[in-house]
């Protein structure tokens, strides 16, 4: 089986390249308003207020807002939730901070965004 190793590696690289290229080509140029139609950019959760958190959320090393952190992280592994009841937002974000290896600062910005 040893002789098949290079083949499997080459196969995997080619497959990956094709997928990436295919993805880019198929949907390369949607207009900027369509950003929200991305699979990963779910509409903002009901309890969040993007205006508010957008303005108050800047800080620290990430220089990102709570909304940006939500958009960039919360669909890495699964569909981002549309809403989280405020009284459990702290619990869920603790859970996700551990799972997704988020920083303390990201946790705080997310809490501000999701339960302002």
């Amino acid at each position: 089986m040893i002789h098949r190793r290079p083949a499997i590696l080459a196969g995997s690289l080619v497959a990956c390249g094709l997928a990436v290229a295919g993805g880019l080509k198929l949907y390369a140029s949607p207009s900027s308003q369509q950003q929200n139609t991305s699979a990963q950019s779910q509409p903002a959760p009901k309890s969040g207020n993007s205006e508010k958190s957008g303005k108050s959320g800047h800080a620290g090393k990430t220089a990102k807002t709570g909304e940006q952190i939500f958009q960039q992280n919360c669909s890495r592994c699964h569909q981002a939730p549309m809403s989280i009841p405020p009284r459990i937002t702290g619990t869920v974000i603790m859970h996700m901070r551990v799972r997704a290896r988020l920083t303390g600062e990201e946790q705080q910005l997310l809490l501000k965004y999701l339960a302002p």
Binding site: L24, Y27, S38, Q40
Partner: peptide, 16 residues
Amino acid sequence: LSWQPPRTPLDVKFEY
């Protein structure tokens, strides 16, 4: 590798 290209409704995941 895990990639959700911004502005593209695609999720690519690859693992070896």
